[in-house]
């Protein structure tokens, strides 16, 4: 009960900060839309590349990537807030006041999820408005959202672990860069089969590749690699949960 009370308090404060501060809210809404526009709009001719066989078209192909990207960066952006709380001294007071400190991590996690749900709702409305095609009955779309949800939590836990270790906004690139790399070393612009050379070799072993490919399978109503994708996403979640809890202990020890 104490954990939930702390989580509720932390998440309410974080969400209040985000939704009442345009400089925090607008970038997290605009950036995914912008990437969606730039990729789906600018690169639509890529679907004419020999071997590109995604049935729902390039808009849907890029929608999946942008949904997953927004999930991951939504988690990272919340991590920036944790670092800011440490810089301002608020997090230290929070550590003193919370009867169960795991509730702090949980609270940040809940706020990251709510933030992402708002972002992905806007993104979905825009995607359908510009004529995105979805295969089957559309129910499979929720499989994509489930993957995004797990990815969002995993990214938040990663960023939380970094923020609690460094306790400064200067750690922003450390939170952001690895996430950027893992995302962009997946098949972003073309299916895995069309990647060549070193980037193909990296994409094959990149756990995010399974997630992206399965997400695209959901949207085309042709589920592929579902177990591997959920396994990879959950595996990252569990790994970063351990990382975040260790980070919390680190912050506690630092006083």
């Amino acid at each position: 009960m104490k954990t939930l009370a702390v989580a509720r308090g932390v998440s309410w404060r974080t969400l209040h900060n985000v939704f009442t501060n345009p400089s925090l809210l607008i970038p997290s809404l605009i950036f995914p839309l912008f990437f969606f526009t730039a990729f789906a709009g600018g690169l639509s001719r890529v679907r004419d590349v020999p071997g590109f066989d995604y049935p729902q078209g390039y808009t849907a192909f890029q929608f999946v990537f942008v949904v997953l990207q927004s999930a991951a960066f939504g988690g990272v952006f919340t991590g920036f807030g944790i670092a800011r709380d440490f810089e301002s001294g608020f997090a230290r007071r929070l550590l003193l006041a919370a009867p169960n400190r795991f509730g702090i991590v949980l609270g940040y996690g809940i706020s990251a999820l709510v933030r992402w749900l708002v972002t992905v709702s806007v993104l979905t409305v825009v995607a359908f408005a510009v004529g995105m095609q979805v295969g089957g009955s559309g129910v499979d779309l929720f499989g994509l959202y489930a993957l995004g949800l797990i990815l969002n939590v995993a990214a938040l836990l990663w960023a939380c672990g970094v923020a609690m270790r460094f306790r400064t906004m200067q750690a922003g690139p450390v939170m952001q860069f690895p996430v950027f790399l893992v995302l962009f070393f997946a098949p972003v612009y073309v299916p895995l089969a069309l990647l060549q050379g070193w980037i193909h070799d990296i994409a094959v072993v990149n756990p995010l590749t399974r997630v992206v490919e399965a997400g695209r399978g959901f949207l085309a109503a042709q589920p592929t690699e579902v177990a591997a994708a959920f396994g990879a996403a959950l595996g990252l979640g569990v790994l970063f949960l351990w990382w975040a809890v260790r980070g919390l202990r680190n912050a506690e020890a630092a006083g």
């Binding site: 690169l43 590349v49 690139p173 790399l181 962009f184 972003v188 990647l195 050379g197």
Partner: peptide, 28 residues
């Protein structure tokens, strides 16, 4: 260092990612 390294590393990283991922575009 951040002011020197970011303008050197980040564009090179994006070049690597994009040139790998979009190589297929040359077949258009």
């Amino acid at each position: 260092p951040a002011s020197v390294i970011s303008p050197l590393v980040f564009p090179m990283l994006l070049l690597a990612v994009n040139s790998g991922g979009l190589k297929a575009e040359t077949r258009l």
